[in-house]
Structure formats: C-alpha cells, structure tokens
Design a protein around this nucleic acid. Sequence first.
DNA 1: TATATATGCTTGCGCACGCATTGTCAATAG
DNA 2: CTATTGACAATGCGTGCGCAAGCATATATA
Lengths: 157, 157
Amino acid sequence: MNPKFTEVEGLAWGKLLNVHSIMARRLEEMLQTRYQISHGEFEVLLRLSWASDNRRRIWELAETSVLTHSGMSRLIERLVKAGLVRRETATEDKRGAYAVITAAGLERIAAAEASNIELVKQHFLSLYNEEELKQMGSFWKRFLNYEEQLAKDETGS
Amino acid sequence: MNPKFTEVEGLAWGKLLNVHSIMARRLEEMLQTRYQISHGEFEVLLRLSWASDNRRRIWELAETSVLTHSGMSRLIERLVKAGLVRRETATEDKRGAYAVITAAGLERIAAAEASNIELVKQHFLSLYNEEELKQMGSFWKRFLNYEEQLAKDETGS
DNA sequence: TATATATGCTTGCGCACGCATTGTCAATAG
DNA sequence: CTATTGACAATGCGTGCGCAAGCATATATA
C-alpha cells in the first residue's frame, strides 16, 4: 500500500516524460511558426496526404487521433478556412462527409513533414546508433503488443 | 531536401509517441475519476508535498511546468477552491504568493501518487527487466544531457 | 410501409489555456 | 524622498477542446 519507484524505474519512466515534453514543445513551436498549423492539424493533413484519393471520412480521422468527433469536426473547419482542406458530402451515405486535402494542403504538409523529420533526426535520432534505435523500437513494440493483447482480452470477456 | 525516416528510426520515434499517448490518457483518466484532479494539478500537488515546508512560490511552480504564469495562477485558484491548497502572501516580498498544500491536499496526493506508481508499474515497468530499464534510463539521460549542453551554449554565445 | 433505433456530423455551452495588460510592491538612481 | 524600472501575480479576451444535445440520414423491426 506504499508503492515507490526504484531509482532505475524512476529514471526509465520519469525521464521519458521529460524527453517527450521537450520534443513535443519544440515540434509544436516549429510547426506553428513556420507553417501556421498545430500538431493535431499536422497529423490530420499527413493522414490525408497518405490516402490514395486524398480523402478520409471525418469519423475515421477522429478515431485514429486524440480528439473526439466534435473536436475533429472543428479542426477540419479550421483547415477548410485555411484553404488546406475541403469538405465533400459522401455520395454513398449522405450523413457523412469526407475531408479532402487540397493542392495547397499537399504543398504545406510536404514542407512541414520534411521539417518535422529533420528536427527529430537532429535533436533525437542522431544521439543513438543503429543498434540502440533497434532496441528502443523493440521496447515500444513490446508495450504496444501488450496493449493490443489487453484490448483483445477485454472484448473477449 | 527530401528527408525520410528509415524503418528503424520510424519505430524508435513514432512508436514512442504512441506509448506516451496511451499511458498519458490512462493516467489522466485514472486521476480524474478517482481523485478529481488533472495531470497538471497532480504534478503541482506532488511538488508541494515534496517541499520541506509544504509551500512553493507560484512563479517557481510555473517555471518547472508546462504552464505559463497565468495558467499556473488559475490552476492554483482551482486547487484553492477544491480545498487542497491555500494561498499565503509572502512575508518577505509582498508582491509574491506561496501556494501551500493543505492537510486535505496531502491526503489526496498521497493516494493519487500511490495509484499513479502502481499504474505505471503494472502497465509499463513490469514489461521490462532491470537491465532494460537501465538502458532506457541511459537513453533519456543522454538526450537530457545534450539538451542541457545546448541551453548552456546558447546562453554562452 | 410505418416506426424505432443507430450513426455521422454539427453546435451550444462551459472550462482551461496563452497572450497581453494591469495592479501591486520592491529596488535602485538621482 | 521621489521617480523609474523591474518582478510577481491576477485578469480580460480570444481560442480550442469535451460533453451533451440536436439534426439529418440510414438501418432494423414489425
């Protein structure tokens, strides 16, 4: 009833929080000042740019993000106002709408993604060698597999 | 001008974001439902409980957090309303104010911290052995040392 | 077909935040 | 002693978010 972290545990977890916080701040500041988009908007534009037909349903974008449906609805609204995305009502289901990335959006996200990758390489990845990066990846994979298993067990019960 | 992540890099960085996001959500939900506090409030209460005299200046709390001074001012206001903290104007400098954690606050934060540690152990730390946790810690230490060096270089120039 | 329920998105409301400004006090210069 | 400057905290305003409710459409049931 009186749990404590060992020193090693405290470093492994606590400093992870610090690392994330520093990198997240840096990335957000860069995206805002250079490209006038938030990190959430960045991720949405990225997903849209990956889509074969440059479009995704709004609920789908919400599911795979931190936001709720209403939050995503407003985020798309901002991107529409900025001319980076347009809405299209779905022909096969008139309740729904697609967010479609525009040419301006594609241009913006290509530049932003390049800056993003450069920044992460310079400030994070460059500090570790190939072997270490592999190990990091395996750590995260183990966690995410465990999470997936948890989710399955829950639906199964 | 067309940077890309290698597969290994993409895993080491991208999945780190996923891990953080999953854990952060879980922690915040737990703190909110069981203890009616946000993660930011949790961290402030924790700092106050560590302080020898159970008090810290408001600007000091702001500096070592994600918030600005105004944000911290309001966060303290909420904690005061909740009876977990009280304000005391600093006797040695009447411009300033201390946030002082109350008995109720100490009680709340002790329970919340225990839950927090348990949750992190169960869902994260338990997946790795001592050796692996040490390695993780060394990764973060390397990053944070590098950051510190950067900051020094900047002030030095 | 008629009715009930579910789904996809939007909107009203309240909350927490940052920015810019203000109020209050301290420190220093003349 | 007074004026100027600076530091700490509080506050007005705008923004983005979640929650809950609403609207339109789709699906299931009889």
